[in-house]
Amino acid sequence: MTAQPNHKRTVALRVARQVSLLFFVALIAFISYRHQALGGGPQGAAPLDTYCVFGGAATLWTYITTGQFIQKTNMANLVLLTAAVTLVTLTGASFCGWICPFGAIQEWLYRINKKLLKITWTPSDAIDRPLRWLRFLILALILYMTVSTNSLWFEAYDPFKMLFHMNFSEMTLTGIVILGVTLLSALIIERAWCRYLCPLGALFTLFAPLSRINITRHRASCINCHACTKACPVQIDVAQQDVVRDSQCIKCLRCIIHCPVADTLTLDAALTSPPAPPQTPSPSKQHPLSS
């Protein structure tokens, strides 16, 4: 007989992550509201852009070459960028799964739709894999345009800013359309923006493979039910891997929560080198989506 996972612990894990995401959504909404209420400058409150991790990446080149910051960015952006990159280097793209407010909104939208309308779509690998490269194109375009215009070029199109800015008079039509399309696609495809378009996610992909903490699948106890693969919001085939080193893994730990056999999926930290896969033989493989 196989050991069952501790139900209380899986509930606590779900709740902890959702509370964390809710906290950051509320924090960013408060920061934005405070700026709109008090105005900017020394007498007011800093704009949303100053609290954006990607703002750090956008202003970094200007800061290195001139010692100045692009308008609306500040030293706080560089502190945030340092924190996020360190986090991703040590733990993988956990920023996306535990902190990012825009990721949270997408996740909630998808869940609501899955419960109510049930109109969802899981792109096949043939579509999913090429689309993921779009993020790098967008990252390169934004960095190029930011440096060449010496301004936050992307702010007029950024769906994160459009959603949280709380000032309709400053919203651009293109930005509203992009936000609409992004939210609509997030309803149908889980975390669509994160997976295919997010420039910050592209940046994280460069550091996430260095992660010291990864999910290990223990073949000896795995019953090949593929519940982990089905639960993964970014379509990682967890059931076919010994160690999940995919840089797309947002460390949401849903695979661990859904695994019916206790301690079959674990989080392991390797301080010197990535954890070695278990050597035990794998049971016969099933189709990835079979139950």
Binding site: L13, S94, L253, T266, D268, A269, A270
Partner: peptide
């Protein structure tokens, strides 16, 4: 070294 999921959070 194994890390408990909640501790990871």
């Amino acid at each position: 070294m194994r890390i408990k999921p909640l501790l990871f959070g």
